[in-house]
Design a protein around this nucleic acid. Sequence first.
DNA 1: TAGATTGTTAATCGATTAACAATC
DNA 2: TAGATTGTTAATCGATTAACAATC
Lengths: 210, 210
Amino acid sequence: MEKKKISITVIRRLPKYYRKLEDLEKIKISRVSSQELSVLTGFTASQIRQDLNNFGGFGQQGYGYNVKELKDNLEKILGLKNVHNTCVVGAGNLGSAVANFKGFDDAGFKIVAIFDKSEDVIGTKIGGISVKDSADMKKTIKDKDIKIAVLTVPKENAQDVAEELVEANVKSIWNLTTADLDLKDDVIVEDVSLIDSLFTLSYFMKEKYK
Amino acid sequence: MEKKKISITVIRRLPKYYRKLEDLEKIKISRVSSQELSVLTGFTASQIRQDLNNFGGFGQQGYGYNVKELKDNLEKILGLKNVHNTCVVGAGNLGSAVANFKGFDDAGFKIVAIFDKSEDVIGTKIGGISVKDSADMKKTIKDKDIKIAVLTVPKENAQDVAEELVEANVKSIWNLTTADLDLKDDVIVEDVSLIDSLFTLSYFMKEKYK
DNA sequence: TAGATTGTTAATCGATTAACAATC
DNA sequence: TAGATTGTTAATCGATTAACAATC
């Protein structure tokens, strides 16, 4: 009756399963056990079986999991076949990296617009797409039915731009800035937190050396 | 006698405390309670007090925490004042973004070399540093005593380049590629996992809309 | 002093691991 | 059938929350 809520810790392991299954498929391996997946992912076999069983019984006793079948199921679970019109806001190096990143398109994020406010880049092409003036952002987002935005603007502008995106009806934001966004709850914000990752690395360096 | 091991979940919250304290200092707020930090960070006040007490009693009953003092302590704990000679491997958009990123230098990661194997970029300047041929990488790393590498090469080359870095005595790698690196245990690898973050966003989009 | 808020212990909650019956 | 490995329950472990005495 009720689908039980799946914890965020489980969700965040799914991408790794998916990637490892892609790798296995690429080298023509058609079956895999939770034990083998454990070696590949670093999670325990028990954990893997429990994680997957949140979504269905994809395995078979005495056999393991069929690589292609499990991969296809994870693809559906992660929604990787759903295509979303996406824009990149901020056409600096980071924005350019995203716009040129093939994995982005493969995951269903279809970049249909790139915005920047600098005269220097407006009109230039990145990954085959011409950079538009941020001033036209809201209109373009509505016209092209853009639901996802990648945010790569400077920290100082992040909150304001994010609010503008939400006003234009963007449903989720991939936040590559170092700002924490404060938006209404129904907006999905996925933070990459580059700076936190870097600080964590600094911590481990300090712990290990001196 | 024994310093108890501090869990990774605690460590990964420290950067956010630090950033919020920086923000407070910037607007001239000199004291803060765990309750106020809770609002700023989204962690509970109880959690914050427990986290901080892993490292020392930085607060004062009836008063809270002194912003500057706590920030300075976290700075030491995170090792942000320790300077590390760092190289960027891969001078594409992502590598350029890192090389130009001010927060990188602020955190003590001093970029002293950038490598790429493409003739097109070797010799060009990024963030004031001239891009060197990857062929000279090992020698330069030893000569300049580089201990940290930022990896932004294509997925296919990530493992090989990482191994080369380790041979050259690099101690830790900030991994911005979509590859999972397999290196000896004493090498510190901090994965940013952009692709996993993206897949997670895809999952939440799917859950919410259809 | 009275009020506020920490530091810290105890209680609860959730996630991971272990174990094994079911079954391919 | 015998062997392998899942799906799932129970046990353990660790992290979060609650509570409050200590004390500024």
